[in-house]
Simulated assay, not measured.
Amino acid sequence: MYDETHLQIDHRIPYRVAGDDTGSERNPDDFMLLSGSAQRQKSWACEHCKNYLTTKDINVCKTCYWAYPEQFEHIATKQERRVDLTFNGNDIELYEELKKKAIKNNSSIQEELKKMIK
């Protein structure tokens, strides 16, 4: 969990796509809180997205992981799915077991998790 003093406010849909309603009151739902590293990841993904670079269709952004991670259809127009999983407290032991298993199988942690789901 992040310390809220380290979170940054970011547009859900990039300013260069949606613009800004400077003449009216801003809607808090148009923004999200992100950690600094997540904000940099989002910026990089958006700046390299074909929608951001050419079409600038707000509806494409509305279905993107980076704008609405709780309900998305694509990640920067690529057919991908993403799950962010954090281990803390007693769960760190589970992570270490998973890491050992991945090393033993000459695999990645992500691949081990996929095998477990299958």
Rank of each mutant, 00 (worst) to 15 (best):
Lys100Met: 09
Ser108Ala: 12
Glu96Asp: 14
Tyr95His: 09
Glu96Ile: 08
Ile75Phe: 08
Lys104Cys: 07
Asn88Ala: 08
Asp57Leu: 01
Thr22Glu: 01
Glu93Thr: 15
Asp84Cys: 10
Leu94Val: 15
Ile13Asp: 09
Asp84Val: 14
Ile103Ser: 13
Lys78Pro: 12
Tyr52Trp: 06
Lys42Trp: 06
Glu93Arg: 11
Trp66Gly: 07
Asn105Trp: 06
Ser43Glu: 12
Arg26Pro: 01
Gly23Ser: 03
Lys99Gly: 04
Glu47Cys: 09
Leu94Arg: 08
Val60Phe: 02
Phe72Arg: 08
Trp66Val: 07
Ala102Cys: 14
Asp20Gly: 05
Asp29Asn: 03
Val60Gln: 04
Ile58Lys: 09
Ile103Asn: 13
Asp57Ser: 05
Leu98Met: 15
Arg12Thr: 01
Ala38His: 08
Ser107Thr: 15
Val17Phe: 03
His74Gly: 06
Tyr15Leu: 04
Asn106Gly: 11
His11Gly: 01
Leu33Ser: 05
His48Thr: 06
Ile103Cys: 10
Thr77Gln: 07
Lys42Ile: 00
Glu73Pro: 02
Arg16Asp: 04
Leu34Asp: 03
Ala102Ser: 15
Gln41Ile: 04
Ile75Tyr: 06
Val17Asp: 03
Tyr52Ile: 00
Arg26Gln: 04
Leu85Asn: 09
Ala18His: 00
Ser107His: 13
Ser107Asp: 15
Lys50Ala: 08
Gln79Gly: 05
Ile103His: 10
Asn106Pro: 03
Ile103Phe: 12
Asp57Arg: 00
Thr54Lys: 14
Asp91Cys: 10
Ala102Gly: 15
Leu94Tyr: 08
Arg81Met: 03
Glu73Leu: 01
Gln41Trp: 02
Cys61Met: 08
Pro28His: 00
Asn105Ser: 14
Gly36Asn: 09
Val60Ser: 12
Ser43His: 07
Ser24Cys: 09
Cys46Phe: 07
His74Glu: 08
Gly89His: 09
Leu98Thr: 13
Thr54His: 07
Asn59His: 06
Thr54Ala: 06
Tyr65Met: 02
Leu53Ser: 07
Pro14His: 05
Lys99Val: 05
Gly19Ile: 00
Arg26His: 07
